[in-house]
Structures are given as C-alpha cells and as structure tokens.
Nucleic acid binder design. Sequence first.
RNA 1: GUGGUCAUAGCUCAAUGGUAGAGCCCCAGAUUGUGGUUCUGGUUGUUGCGGGUUCGAGUCCCGUUGACCACCCCA
Length: 425
Amino acid sequence: MWRAPAINRMQTLPGFRDFLPRQCAERNYIFARWREVARRYGFVEWDGPVLEPTELYKKKSGDEIVGQLFNFTDKGEREVAMRPELTPTLARVIAAHEREFKKPLKWFSIPQCFRYEKQQRGRLREHFQLNCDIIGESSLEADIELIGLCVDLLRAFGFTAKDVVVRISDREFWIDLLREQKVPEARWSELLQVIDKSERQSREKTAEQLGAIAKSVFSILKSGGTSEKLDRIAASLRQRGLDDFVKVDLGIVRGLAYYTGVVFEAFDRAGKLRALAGGGRYDNLIEQLSDAAVSMPALGFAMGDVVLGELINEVPAAREKLEAAVRTDNKIDIFVVIAKEERRADALAQIQQFRERGYRADYPLVPTKVAKQFQTAEQLGARIAILFGDEWPSVAVKNLMTGEQQLVPNQELLAYLAHSLSLSS
RNA sequence: GUGGUCAUAGCUCAAUGGUAGAGCCCCAGAUUGUGGUUCUGGUUGUUGCGGGUUCGAGUCCCGUUGACCACCCCA
C-alpha cells in the first residue's frame, strides 16, 4: 500500500531553497547584473505564467525535458506543469502577439523554472535563469549580438577569459553532414544527441551509436573543424575584443530538439562545473507551436543562477564584487537613538522626514538602553546615529565610522545629513 | 530512476556500547545617555524519524526521510 513520504515541516522540499537575507542579497546582485547588461544591449523585460499546460512542453521540447517535468493534475482536471524553461512560453506568446511589435524583438526575462529531478551540485528542482531572445531576425548578425551579450553578461560578474569560455557550434554543419551521408531524417535528432554526448562518454560507445558515420564525425571533432558561419562569428567578436572568450567547438550540439542553427554553451575554464549558459537558434519552434502558422526566426539563450553562483564563489575577483554588493544591500543609513522616551514623538516625526527623503532609517520600537541602541545601529550597518535626548531641540549626530559626534539643531538636520551622507558614500 | 557516503544545539563540530559536550551566534548583566574589544552569567537538543539487538544505543542491525557525490539526464 502506498504511503505518502513523511514530511519534515522544518525542511524545504528537496531541491528547493530558502532565501534568507544574505541569499536574497546575492540573488538581487545577480539579477541586477543580468538586467543591467541585457538593457545595455537594448533588451526589454517580459514574463509569462509559472504554470502551463503540460501539452506545451510535450509538443516540441523533446522527450528529454518531458520526463522531468514538475507536473500534476489541477482541481479542474487540467494537466499542468511548472515551467521547466521559458522558450515554449515565449514561442506561444510571439505566435499570438507578434504583429503588435516591430521586428526584431529583443526580449529578456528572469523566470524561476522547475524540474522534477534528483538534485545534486549545480542542479536543483528550482532555479532562476536569465533568458535573452531575439525574434524576427534570421541574419547571422543576430547570432553574433546574442553571443556578445552572453560574453558581456559573464564579464559583468568579474569573470575574465581565464575563468570562462563560450563554445560555439552550428547544428547545420552536422545536418549537412547527415544529409550528405544519406542518413534518414528520422534519425537526425538521435544522432545529434549522440554527438552532443560524445565528450561525456567513451569513444567505443559513441562509435557504436553513430554506426556508419562514426569515422567522419570523429575526424571532424579531432581536427577542430569549423565552418564559414562560425568563422564569421569569431571574426566579429575579435573586432570587439571579445574573442578570448569564445572558442569554435563543433562538439557542442545541445540536447533540446528544437535547435536549428548556431548553438553555444558557456563553461568555466576549469571544467569543474556544469554549463553556465546555453542556447542557440530555433527558427522553426514558433511555427510549430502556432496554430495560426506564424513563422518567425528566433534565437536565445538561458543562464542559470545556481551554477553561476558557484563559479562566483570560486573566482576571487568575482567573489569580491559580490561581497561588496551584498555588504551594502541590507544596510541602513541612519539609526535614531532614543535616549529619552519623552523625545520619541519628535524622533518619529524626524524619521518620517528621513524616509520621505529616501534615507534608510531605523529606530528601537520599544524603550531600550542607549548602549544597546548603539550596538544595534552598528549591527544594522548604519553610517550615522542620531541621538534624541536632553539636548533637544538639538540632536547629537554621530558618525559611526569615525566616532566623531556633534550637536546639530534639529531644524538644520536634513541639510546637515544631505551633506555628510553624500560625503561618506 | 540506480549506486556510494553521511545525518548530534540556530551554525561548525566533539563524545573506547555506560549520566550528551565545546566554540560561535543569540539573550541578560559589569551602578544613572554612546557601538566595534573584554569579563560574567543564561537559554537551546525527544542525537532526522520508526523499529530491532542489549542490563544499557548518539554509537550496532533493519527500514524510512533528507543531504552530499557519482551515474542517468541536462536548463
């Protein structure tokens, strides 16, 4: 008889995370860099539903992803799934709304995605990923723009070409080969996956799975083959000084079935971690998902927060950048010390002023010893403490970094702070 | 989904089968209104959960849940 697993209410479900303030600050930092760079490239933000009909993923994402869906039947008997990725949603949205926008569209999103898998390092059941897509442009310039964006995103976290590499490849190259070798089209998808996997499994096994084309595939992989398209991408990135970050590598094919052209993946140079990002061209997906037969070339990639966070931790320069951001994220500007409870009302009136000016200001909610209040101010990261007490209508303004303190008439306080806080920031 | 390792206080970890501890964190004090250091005191556990062996189990055995690692697969 089936029994539900015992659930420990003190723990998160397997593969899910709590974001305590520290983790939230890290996440904010990652999202901020993502948004900043994507917008720098002229991308605009959008989003879709977390829950979609399971059918959307069964249709065209390929069987790989369908077996790992976080799916269930809702109370209305609908088969639904937590989104494992955003691209099918994007394709649906574009198919429905493409006429409302001038082409090409450059859209980005930061969805939380879900997969029902056993978790391990770099792979949870939930993660956030930046998705950047260009829709409605078939020219190779769009591929170049997208790869350039991927590189600049990594650079924004403080990574150098010594830390990361974007390996670029082209599915068309392999499809041409399969066509030449007269491989039936029905087997293409399967063979592409074998090539994709060749790096991770034994040569013997790959040879067996490839059969007749094994010899030519191995010789291409070994010789570090390339194509005109890939050379053009590399040349363009060289002109922009980003070529150290990229490497043509036909061994990259990617597992998802919907890719049609240039594909790429970003890795840590040490090769310790899973892929940092991955994507490519999917020119047929929108047409396949649209009943109205909208055909639209498209390409995009995704970068996940989990592996990225792991690499940030391993690269000192990147780690320092994150630490600096995290240190300031939850800090307050001003802590108001209420030394005499008779001044509480005056203090609160002043705090309201601070907050309306945009300062982060805090104070003790209940009567508290002065020493304790200063300790709290310190722990909250306040740069300035303002003491309301016997000196009223003046207040004592103390710079918590230097320890300097001076009396300021309450009337002049805002002007005084505008000056001193701008100096110390 | 398969296999291996592990599970002790909020955190990091101790405890030859014999009364569960330390450090950190947190809280309170060191005479009246000034933080970071110091000193003193204090709270915290059904040893993940459920069975079993034993006079006695944190320790040995079985199951279960979870974590980590590898496979599978890959965003």
